[in-house]
Write a protein that binds this DNA or RNA. Structure first.
Lengths: 164, 164
DNA sequence: TGCAATTTCTTTAAACTTCAAGCAATTGGC
DNA sequence: GCCAATTGCTTGAAGTTTAAAGAAATTGCA
């Protein structure tokens, strides 16, 4: 059903404009918030976002995790994590020890001070995020969660199909 | 109304857990898709995502734009754009000329080959994005667009309030 | 057992990114 | 006109990031 240039049905063949606009909006939102979090972390705690993210992963567990686990969860490269961990061990936030059963493996943990420092930052961080989304109703949030879950599933399927 | 640890209403004071989970989900989605786009751009066109993004901004206009415009639209720092533009001029994709009325200002444009090359990549890119979101119904997409617009507005308000 | 494949991690080069400082040009009062 | 403030851009240092190659250890299977 191709009409004329006024009705907008001429955007064939294959109009994928809406998906593209969705992606750009998603990206804009994330970049905006990420920048905000980055600024505040630097301002209030003089810490970088990647360091905060890494510590956040480690805070979820009590007994440490390997570099590979970290890189999977953070969705960054292995070499990236090596460097980040190195600097965080250096600054006393992290603790590393080699597995006794597999000498390739390193278990990384937050040190006592590392965890304490992170918890302080995390409490503030949670408030910032709450403020960032404070124009959204509980229903908006539920709905966004649901749709983003669906989008995530779709994206994973798409990525998997390419690699396969 | 504080109950007990089973009912989950004990998460006071100030439960901001849902907002935090929303942010993490948003970030995961974006990171996932961004990584996918990055891989495909490198694979098929041997180009980096930042270069593609910069060219995408320039493709929207016919007569070029300044470095400041670029950095605002891309939401990255000024110094970042300086380097990116430098490399893209070097590779023949961009063209720069100094304003005649204000000698601080540089107008940046896509070259003929730069634009042609970008258009080819953009056409593919649009298809990838369509595939990424192909599990979502038109209604899902509309709803996501609406909610992300609201989230963006909220985030902007929050950021503005901090800077002010 | 032997050894090829896999896994874990590190290293390297190049690119990207931010922040802060700085330079040059312009603007806006006065 | 003067000059302080602002604007546009560049530079430099530190850090982050990826991709690719490689080293070391383990695993799995013939």
């Amino acid at each position: 059903m191709i009409l004329d240039s006024e009705t907008k049905a001429v955007e064939l063949p294959d109009d994928h404009g809406t998906e593209l606009r969705l992606w750009l909006r998603l990206l804009t939102c994330t970049t905006l918030i990420e920048g905000e979090v980055r600024s505040r972390l630097r301002e209030k705690f003089d810490v970088t976002l990647p360091r905060f993210d890494l510590m956040a992963q480690l805070d979820k567990v009590s007994d440490g995790m390997t570099l590979s686990d970290l890189s999977k969860r953070m969705m960054v490269s292995n070499g990236n994590v090596t460097g980040l961990v190195e600097r965080l061990v250096e600054s006393g936030h992290l603790d590393r020890r080699t597995s006794e059963t597999d000498r390739r493996v390193q278990f990384i943990r937050l040190t006592k001070t590392g965890r304490a420092e992170f918890r302080k930052m995390a409490a503030e961080h949670e408030k910032w995020i709450a403020d960032v989304f404070s124009d959204l109703s509980p229903k908006d949030i539920r709905e966004l969660m649901r749709l983003l879950a669906k989008a995530k599933g779709s994206a994973q399927r798409s990525a998997k199909a390419r690699t396969a």
